[in-house]
Design a protein around this nucleic acid. Structure first.
Lengths: 268, 268
DNA sequence: CGTGCAAAG
DNA sequence: CTTTCCACG
């Protein structure tokens, strides 16, 4: 029995995370695939051992806007294929999506725009959602036709249900917990057929949250949001035997405002 | 016999300098008047003990552009008068000039624009120089008529002679050591009748430099520039009995890229 | 190289 | 509150 362990982590600036614990975290992780978001750097701007860490294959998808967004997929085995973007004129150069094919499974890193209610940034988020839902459907169909599984990992910037953020009552008009955003996530599950693997294994708990604002005492009060998801095809979800969030125990151990989210799948 | 000790210091951001040693330096100084440049903050943005230090009267002249320029004059005795700007439409709100009257002497804090050869910033510097030379003449005449002395202290952003910067050979096309800038400083002395009090007391030495770039190893190599001057009326210059630059001995003791420059005058 | 800003999150 | 950008120095 082999396993596939996949981790997603929004690093909030990989250059800042380096030296705050990211390097040590990567060296210690047992994941086979690591999806990163908010790299906020061109590969050239990264230290050699971060850009090309020993023992990993890397796919970097920076934004054309310097210092913004940027996703990556790291894998211990060499991918059969690498793709950046999802066929969107508007978003393919914005460092928000990349995917690799491993034998039998496609793993994607997603950084959905964060939005701000009532502003053009929210409209951009909505446009991304509309285009991306189409891609999610295509991806599932293609994977099903090829007999592959798929998991789309990353920062989706939406908390789905009340259990997915501590202060849900006061955030019903906040971007990230708007009714239309939550409905969109429901369509990702019901219409495109994905499974939220962490919630599947932990159906009744509050959280586990994966992001705490740096503002105020959000981390100390565990006033977090669960906005980082691994969304997989149903066949893969059924094989998920473990899923957890690596919440730092102390403020000093944090190297991002997000925590890594990991799922372990039993294969073959 | 009473003395008047005047210090000028470009602080390169007073908020940054606070906590790097400025506060301790001010507490220890024996100066009677301190002229500051590059405060880069509104008074409101400063900690109370920095905005209104115990034992000092203060005149703050911030720039209307946030985070830029900004001069101040601190005095142990209450000024008879305070003035901001020198009657220039273009420059009076830019945080580059303020003066106070003490009994028998006017003390001014100047931050001359820094310029960049061949750019609009150099033209701005030239316009400032032209207007400011007129003010220097008026100031001298008014002081002479009133039987007052005057000293204009600050960052003049021009090295006068070869002895005033270490790398004069390679900087003859650099803003700060252009022939026309050096000629203008000569006019400040010969035409407006001011005396460079530090050079008067130290006529033969290289420097003493008052600014070292943060780039490279300028400070370690003492690759400095003497661009901070106390320019006084001749009567006051004759009474200058000591003048020196407070160059930090170690990098760790620096709280600005400039060092304070101090002159002691014997009065009455 | 360092300061303070803005935009983003 | 934090990261990264930029303009300025």
């Amino acid at each position: 029995m082999t396993t596939l362990t996949v981790t997603t982590a929004n690093v909030n600036g990989l250059r800042a995370a380096t030296g705050k614990g990211y390097v040590e975290w990567l060296a210690a992780t047992e994941a086979d695939v690591v999806c990163l978001q908010e790299v906020r750097a061109e590969p050239d701007q990264l230290a050699d051992h971060v850009r090309a860490p020993e023992g990993w294959h890397t796919l970097w998808a920076p934004s054309s806007a310097k210092g913004r967004a940027g996703v990556a997929v790291l894998s211990r085995t060499e991918p059969e294929a690498r793709r950046i973007g999802f066929g969107s004129t508007e978003f393919d150069a914005t460092g928000r999506y990349a995917e690799i094919d491993l034998p039998g499974v496609t793993v994607a890193s997603l950084y959905l725009p964060s939005g701000e209610a009532g502003t053009p940034r929210q409209e951009e988020k909505e446009r991304f959602q509309a285009e991306f839902l189409d891609h999610l459907k295509v991806l599932r169909k293609r994977a099903a036709d090829d007999g592959r599984e798929v998991v789309v990992c990353g920062d989706w910037n939406i908390a789905h249900h009340e259990a997915d953020l501590k202060n849900w009552k006061t955030n019903q008009k906040s971007s990230g917990f708007l009714p239309e955003e939550r409905a969109w996530l429901t369509r990702v599950l019901d219409e495109a057929g994905y499974v939220d693997v962490v919630r599947r294994l932990h159906p009744e708990v509050a959280g586990p949250y994966s992001w705490w604002s740096y503002r105020g005492r959000a981390f100390d009060n565990d006033a977090g949001w669960r906005i980082d998801y691994l969304m997989s095809s149903p066949g893969l979800a059924e094989r998920c035997v473990e899923a957890h969030v690596e919440r730092a125990s102390t403020h000093a151990e944090r190297w991002s405002d997000h925590a890594p989210v990991t799922a372990v799948f039993e294969l073959g």
